[in-house]
Design a protein around this nucleic acid. Structure first.
Lengths: 380, 380
DNA sequence: ATGAAAGCGCTAACAC
DNA sequence: GTGTTAGCGCTTTCAT
């Protein structure tokens, strides 16, 4: 007999139903189905029999009952802090993180509750969900945008994972992208092509994003370590520009545009950079546009490196060489480790030294059309 | 006394705690807090007192217990069918829908469970969640990609809302974008500028997406109703092209590129279209790129209209005139109406005629730089 | 106007 | 090895 829709529909099968059929108690059934009590004290036949009956009856545990009794919901909450500088978040960033998070949840049989993703729910909602036993832990994205509130929240949340943020003094897991290494990689790529005059275009957002600051510092360090000079005027970002931007959807482009305009207004070509590193692909797109409007060829006259390796990088012509964050893996680790923390330490390892709270992920680089050796290596 | 973190943390306040403090039974507290029994049979003082105590103790109902007893989880499930033609979905589309969905959920005090969003969970998961009482209803996106399976699923799911899909014979709510009107709007815009030779570039995906087919048909109808001719060679899509594409992230661009190449290879300019309507902004981007490489100016030589009004449309130069779907509103309505169906018909309206199952949403158009009057109206 | 009591379906001691 | 038992925190019917 197959499981016709009607069969499935009607089957409000409970533990007791199975117990009855199997001629044993609900406790036994529960133990078998949960593989509890060390899986060993039950007679193999009983186990087989119960499992078989449960399968045949298409039993599914009632989640509410399970949570109520066990005090665990096997659910993670996802909170993406609304970003004041963008009404829409960064779909590329969040989308890939989510992929990894979903994967980890699936593997560990957890579910994901959206506390906030594209909406503008207040961070307090995280607390509510935990207090209502709806989630066992929270994954926080863009918690940098929450300022001090993050710390207060983490003091209260029993289990949390931060992505691209740290909060010292709390037990929260942090999963970080190594922005310093990212810039070193970008610089290394350009230098290996022969570039020596490289400029940096950060994000124009005020107050400055942690990311942008880290990338700027990483850039400067990478240049310094190679004994390459960086005129102050070649570093653009919110801090350096006196300009107040009207922060719109185009925020990043504007900065790229402005920076490119200023960098290449110098009459003496030897006083201009031969390559640009942008905060992300959108900034790079803004710069590219301006360069092309000025009649400069990319990568002929100027090489361009972005960050994110997003679709945009492949849609533009030339396609943009871009530093890639392992976002999916970061999401996977954030959720995976969070779940490990939540699960009672019933794993074989008796006193496994708690894994580090903070994990850092290295960049890779996707080389596309926008980078090439500089026109003349002479004026370097 | 303020709610210090510690206070909040420890407060595992239950109904009983409140009942004790208030000197009444848990039943009374429950009734008051739920505004049940018509809100009237309880003495106003009791109500006030209980509410005040609950507030002071910062009471939050345990969700599992509530669900178990009431048999409703006040949670919607979100299932985005994995799209075989894209490893990453359409962040613009799903992101905006999600915004609306989240808004509706927040307003009605529902929560959203991710059954599948960027992952590749099988549709069966929808059933599981319902059967486990984890969700009261499901929102299905891209269910077209599920083929026949959709219908079987809907036969079983008690409450579901489809976005951009219909499934006749089921009770599922359908929230649709009016693709026909969209194309009429695009054609109308171009015609009002003076264009008469207009081509259409669909999606190259095989099998053809419903959207793409509808837009092609809508385009043809819009042209016909204006007595404008469309040579067969001016309609590009999966069906018309014999070409099999390697469906990658760039899928749409390729089509735009190919179409533009072919459309403008004709030596006689008067045999070429003066305007292009693309399936979406990505296709438009591909076409734009090819046009510019051919030395054709947009909108000088050719006007270009996309669909989605995405970030991309504003990043490209020229910015792309694009037809916009009211995605946020569509998501809002899908979730809102689904919740209304779920809630017991306890609303004032005794026998409110069930709202229609299928709702259609009209397009608007965002006019940007890529459309202008044709160069010479003569050869029309 | 209020309360007692019976579950909702499951888990986890603890007893046998 | 397996069953008994006592809840988990809430809703809801029915007495009072």
């Amino acid at each position: 007999m197959t499981n016709s829709p009607a069969t499935i529909r009607r089957s409000k099968v409970t533990l007791r139903d199975i117990a009855t059929r199997a001629g044993c108690s609900t406790a036994t059934v529960s133990t078998v189905l949960n593989n509890a009590r060390g899986n060993t004290r039950l007679s193999p036949d009983t186990q087989k029999r119960i499992l078989e009956i449960a399968r045949r009856m298409n039993y599914r545990p009632n989640h509410a009952a399970q949570s109520l009794a066990s005090r665990r919901s096997r659910t993670l909450g996802l909170y993406v802090a609304p970003a004041p500088w963008s009404s829409f978040g960064n779909p590329h960033y969040e989308g890939l993180l989510l992929r990894g998070i979903e994967k980890a949840c699936r593997e560990k049989k957890y579910r994901l509750l959206v506390v906030n993703l594209q909406g503008d729910e207040s961070p307090d909602a995280c607390l509510q969900e935990v207090r209502q036993q709806r989630v066992d832990g929270m994954i926080l994205i863009q918690s940098g945008a929450m300022g001090d509130y993050t710390r207060r929240l983490l003091d209260i949340l029993p289990h949390a994972a931060l992505i691209d943020a740290v909060c010292p003094g709390t037990q929260a897991i942090s999963v970080m992208f190594d922005n310093t290494a990212a810039m070193d990689l970008a610089v290394e790529h350009l230098v290996s092509l022969g570039h020596r005059r490289i400029a940096f275009i950060g994000s124009c957002i005020v107050p400055p994003l942690t990311d942008s600051v880290q990338r700027r510092e990483g850039f400067l360090r990478a240049m310094k370590s190679r004994a390459l000079e960086v005129p102050p005027a070649w570093v653009f970002d919110a801090a350096s520009s006196g300009v107040e931007f009207d922060v719109t959807e185009e925020y990043c482009q504007l900065e790229g545009d402005r920076a490119a305009r200023m960098l290449f207004s110098h009459p003496d070509p030897s006083k201009r950079p031969t390559a640009l590193i942008a905060y992300n692909d959108i900034v790079a797109a803004g710069a590219l546009r301006r360069l092309q409007e000025k009649g400069l060829s990319v990568p002929g006259d100027v090489s361009l490196v972005g960050v994110d390796d997003s679709d945009l990088a492949r849609i533009l012509r030339p396609t943009i060489t871009s530093v890639r964050q392992p976002l999916e893996e970061m999401g996977f680790q954030a959720a995976g480790r969070l779940i490990e923390r939540i699960e009672p330490a019933e794993k074989t390892s008796p006193e496994a030294p708690l894994t580090d709270n903070v994990i850092s992920f290295p960049p890779t680089i996707s080389i596309h059309q926008s980078t090439a050796p500089p026109k003349d290596d002479v004026a370097g």
